[in-house]
């Protein structure tokens, strides 16, 4: 086999596939955990503002340094900062429904960071920086190399392992704070661990791949249709579904046209019809 084939497979395709699996898995598992603890099947991994925060971080790095080399650090940092801000807003006053306050905090922080992203686009140089920002926001694995795995892989691996370990507690937390507490769970500590793990995983994913929507919302639902609602099984199932789905969609994006289609576009285009097909086939899994 010619040398360049070996190097294409091992140095370009392989890191891309590994990263795709990690990113898809991280987004899906965080989505599943968040849906559980917020008792809301409509939330996704970005609910606490991690995606918009990371998007702004990346845009800021592109503006400041006119290159993409600092985007990891900035995206990761601002993603984490956004979740922290949501968490603090959620604790501004002690409500009887802390979960709703937290989601509200996420909505506020997301919209602030979205506005900041728009502002960054507005002041960006339209020939050079603006396309870079827009392309980054659409999400892509095209530039994946092994060092991306080293950078994003560590927080993703830590977050994913944490969520796998604590997964059964998500069942109990999904009964609401009062019941979970009466069942013997320290809800503040348990939710804190889950939010921290999901944020690490999502921020790690977003900083290497850009913003990829849909996976964190829908993979957990596909998981529910296939394996049921028990998070003991659902959380690992979401992880592997997200991983497989993203590798598949990434390959599709690379192959169907001459130039690559950004991942963020294809995940919804492919995932939507597949979701409807599963709905019909499994009758929704008890909803």
């Amino acid at each position: 086999m010619p040398d360049q084939y070996t190097s294409i497979v091992w140095e370009i395709r392989m890191p891309r596939a590994i990263l795709g699996a990690l990113v898809g898995g991280a987004l899906a598992i965080s989505g599943a955990a968040f849906q559980g603890i917020f008792r809301n099947p409509l939330v996704s991994s970005g609910i606490l503002g991690v995606s918009s925060g990371a998007g702004f971080g990346a845009a800021l790095a592109i503006l400041l340094f006119n290159s993409t080399s600092y985007t990891y650090v900035f995206a990761f940092f601002f993603g984490g900062l956004a979740v922290l801000a949501s968490y603090l807003i959620g604790r501004v006053y002690s409500s009887t429904t802390p979960a709703i306050m937290l989601v509200l905090g996420g909505v506020i922080v997301s919209s602030v960071f979205s506005a900041l992203i728009s502002f960054a686009k507005y002041v960006a140089d339209p020939y050079n920086q603006l396309p870079t920002i827009v392309y980054w926001l659409m999400g892509s694995l095209a530039t994946a190399r092994y060092h991306d795995i080293a950078v994003g892989g560590i927080p993703m691996a830590v977050g994913i392992s944490g969520l796998i370990a604590i997964r059964w507690r998500v069942n109990v937390l999904s009964m609401g704070d009062k019941e979970a507490r009466s069942l013997g769970i320290d809800t503040v500590v348990n939710k804190g661990i889950i939010i921290a793990c999901a944020t690490l995983a999502t921020a790690g994913a977003v900083c290497v791949s850009g913003i990829i929507g849909w996976v964190g919302l829908v993979m957990p639902h596909i998981g529910r249709m296939l394996v049921g609602n028990d998070n003991k099984v659902l959380i690992p199932a979401s992880l592997s579904l997200g991983a497989c789905f993203l590798i598949f969609v990434d390959n599709l994006g690379r192959l169907i046209t001459g130039s690559e289609i950004p991942l963020g576009i294809l995940t919804a285009l492919v995932g939507g019809p597949f979701f409807v097909y599963l709905l019909k086939k499994t009758k929704g899994g008890g909803w």
Binding site: G36, P41, S174, L183, G184, G228, N229, D230, W287
Partner: peptide, 15 residues
């Protein structure tokens, strides 16, 4: 919220 099976709900009592 989620359609857990009856046994999953009862198991939460063991938390």
């Amino acid at each position: 919220t989620f359609p857990y099976s009856v046994i999953d709900i009862v198991l939460m009592g063991r938390a």
